[in-house]
Design a protein around this nucleic acid. Structure first.
Length: 305
DNA sequence: AAGACGAAAGTGGTTGA
DNA sequence: TCAACAACTTTCGTCTT
């Protein structure tokens, strides 16, 4: 079943898989294959019972993506207690004790429900975004911690979920913008709200998130534009040099990557229009022009060559 | 005619008093 | 809380190929 994939560019079989980024690329020419290739994952359990019943289990083989299942059963009994009005004559302490217990259980149960919803969404997003399973795992863990801290209360579950997913992607250097992730979120969560939540989580959870590196976006957009490995490599070199000269601090990483690719393709005589590049990278042509100009004016291209 | 260019005005977010 | 600010976008008229 395992067919040896060949690199369509150079015909070699030296493909390597980068699990962290969910990409497959050719070690010889640098071509990045479509990220979908890693897609064998989501299908593996389409065959198993699709339980549409009350508590739909995620069925994932992963640890943190699963919910402890023994919480929901006990609650009902206490609810029934509340119905038995005969308890009225019992001592006050007893009633208070029950209330306390009740509240506690209600609370843990609501957290379980929250987790259930969140993990379901997470699974859906991870598979449509073609992210590796390890990302799902890590995000689930982080979300649990956030939930434990009570930081989800009063917020839309999806907002928090996508924010945690974004944090995990950033920490791993996976080139996904907040905008991109937001588009896969349900309608309940706007990019703006997710961004707000993301910032809140960073400070509340004491998480340090590295700045996104434009170089990470090169293979992604390069593949979209069907640019060769050499062109992508040169774009990376250009960016590395640009970083040294502090040309891109404070600027958007996607625009910088786009401009570097545009420049690199142009140098190779494999020119793409600004419009094409801007569409691939989701920035405007104006931004590409600005970054492009900065690169051209400040970098010795002969040395890069 | 399409692509590249850049000025000008507008948007959403950050920062610092 | 407000104002200044930087990055980016939108729009549009003008060159260049």
């Amino acid at each position: 079943m395992e067919e040896k994939p060949k690199c369509p560019k150079c015909e070699c079989k030296k493909l390597r898989r980068d699990y962290d980024k969910g990409e497959i690329f050719c070690t010889k020419c640098g071509l990045v294959l479509d990220e979908k290739v890693i897609d064998e994952g989501p299908e593996w359990r389409a065959f198993t019972s699709e339980e549409r019943e009350s508590k739909q289990r995620t069925g994932s083989p992963l640890n943190h993506s699963r919910i402890d299942k023994n919480l929901s059963t006990e609650i009902d009994q206490f609810n029934r207690d509340a119905r038995g009005t005969k308890l009225k004559m019992k001592t006050r302490e007893r009633v208070n004790g029950l209330r306390r217990w009740h509240r506690k259980l209600i609370y843990t149960d609501s957290k379980a429900r929250n987790l259930n919803v969140a993990l379901g969404q997470l699974k859906r997003m991870v598979s449509s975004l073609r992210l590796p399973n390890s990302v799902q795992e890590e995000t689930a863990l982080l979300y649990r911690q956030v939930l434990e801290k009570g930081l989800v209360k009063g917020r839309v579950i999806e907002e928090v979920l996508v924010a945690t997913l974004y944090i995990v992607c950033r920490k791993r250097g996976i080139p996904r913008t907040l905008k991109e992730l937001s588009e896969y979120a349900g309608s309940g969560a706007s990019e703006k709200a997710i961004g707000r939540t993301y910032r809140m989580l960073k400070s509340e959870m004491d998480i340090k998130v590295p700045l996104p590196d434009p170089i990470e976006f090169v293979p992604k957009y390069g593949a979209k534009l069907d640019l060769s490995g050499e062109i992508q490599e040169r774009a990376k070199r250009i960016l590395k040099e640009a970083k040294k000269q502090k040309l891109i601090s404070g600027k958007g990483p996607t625009g910088a990557a786009a401009a570097a690719l545009y420049l690199s393709a142009k140098m190779a005589g494999e020119k793409k229009t600004q419009k094409e590049v801007s569409e691939a990278a989701n920035v405007t042509e104006v931004t590409i022009r600005n970054r492009y100009r900065e690169l051209k004016e400040n970098i010795d291209l002969d040395a890069i060559e």
